Amino acid sequence: MKRFKHLEAASVEEAVAALKEYGSGQVMAGGSDLMGCLKDNLWMESPEAVINLKTIPGLDEIRREDGGLHLGALATLTRISESATVRGGWPCLAEAARKTGSPLLRNMGTIAGNICQQNRCWYFRYPDKLGGRIDCVRKGGKRCLAVPGDHRYHSIFGAVKKCIAVNPSDTAPALVALDALVETDRRSIPIDAFFSAERGAVSTVLEHDEIVTSIFVPNQAAGTCGAFRKVAVRKSIDFALVNCAAVVTMENGVVKAARICLNGVHNNPYRCTASEEYLTGKALTQEAATEAGRLAVAAAKPLMLNSYKVPMAGTTVADTLMDCAKQA
């Protein structure tokens, strides 16, 4: 790990000013992803400074307010998963937070850190100290090394600017399904527009000196139910092979509206819009859920080693929808 300055910010404004001063600086929330990035020299330019956000008061609040749920950027995954407020009004988000990592990582990890973490790929994250730097396309190289190499955990929906690394967040699909709004120090970003792996060695639309301050999750309409499922090698402790969140609003026994999101299958969280459109106006039966699962992966373009993810993702969508049906 290369040397850097460690700064403790007293306010968001102070943290932003430090990012402007140190062009390659990085902010630290829980630090669980950041420390791995620092140890492995992940970035093309090593950070001059790390700015600690945990010293800023008020960034970890969880509260119900007019219109929805306020989650401070530094609210930990443990607190979100155990919050009676979150579990009562937005249970799929609480479940997604509960399924993230190990208890230790949930105690450290924050909601903003979980959605802002770097995409996962062993070529992109290969540590310099083990034989030198591997320049994949996200680190300035000319091609994605996973395509001809080991891609068993990679995108089944093709590449984004040649890269097939997947977004690893468990809370991201829940926030997408819940139509959340990401608040930064300068703007409000709809969650559907927040993820942008095509920008290179970053996974969101955030500018370098822009900081997430909170996430707003709107109240759900009457008759709405939600669910989250995750498939991983070692249950919650591993990153997802596939995960899925679904939020369905029922009216008079049929689906009035649905938002379904897969993750672990593409560079960005993957909205299953064809499935959502198909379900609208239909009863949420096993047959309908199965067809929605099929439509969710109809556009898949798997490679040889990750084709198993296609039926896994389709089945996960169907199972998540049936979890919703049981609540209706």
Rank of each mutant, 00 (worst) to 15 (best):
L145K: 12
W122K: 14
R125D: 11
G131W: 04
Y123P: 01
G140M: 06
I134W: 08
H151C: 04
P127K: 13
G131H: 02
K139V: 07
R138P: 03
K129Y: 10
P127H: 08
D128F: 08
C121P: 11
G149I: 02
H151R: 12
A146K: 15
R143Q: 12
Y123K: 11
P127Y: 03
F124V: 00
V147S: 07
P148G: 06
R143S: 13
R125W: 10
D128T: 13
C136W: 01
C121D: 14
G141K: 07
P127M: 08
D128E: 13
D150N: 12
L130E: 02
F124S: 07
A146H: 11
V137R: 04
W122I: 10
P127E: 07
G141M: 09
R133D: 01
P127G: 07
V137D: 08
P148S: 04
K142N: 08
D150C: 00
R138I: 00
C144T: 11
K142Y: 00
L130H: 06
W122D: 15
L130M: 12
D128N: 12
W122C: 06
K142A: 09
Y123A: 06
K142W: 00
G149F: 05
L145N: 07
Y126P: 01
K139F: 05
R125Q: 15
G141L: 10
G141S: 12
G132D: 05
K142V: 15
C121T: 10
W122E: 15
Y123N: 09
I134N: 08
G141E: 13
D128R: 14
G140Q: 05
D150F: 06
Y123C: 03
G131V: 13
P148T: 12
G140V: 07
R133C: 01
D150Y: 14
D135L: 00
P148Y: 05
L130S: 03
R133G: 01
K129C: 08
P127F: 00
Y123V: 02
G141T: 15
C121Q: 14
L145W: 02
A146I: 14
R133E: 05
P148V: 04
D135T: 09
K129H: 10
H151T: 08
P148Q: 09
Y123G: 03
F124C: 07
C136R: 05
R143L: 09
I134Q: 14
L130G: 00
G149S: 09
L130F: 13
K142L: 05
D128V: 14
G131N: 01
Y123R: 11
C144H: 00
G131A: 09
C121S: 14
K129M: 11
C136I: 03
R125M: 13
K139D: 09
C136H: 02
F124L: 11
P127C: 05
W122M: 12
K129A: 11
K142R: 13
G149R: 14
G149V: 02
R138S: 04
L130V: 09
G131E: 01
V147I: 15
G141Q: 11
R125A: 11
R125T: 01
K129E: 12
F124N: 12
L145Q: 09
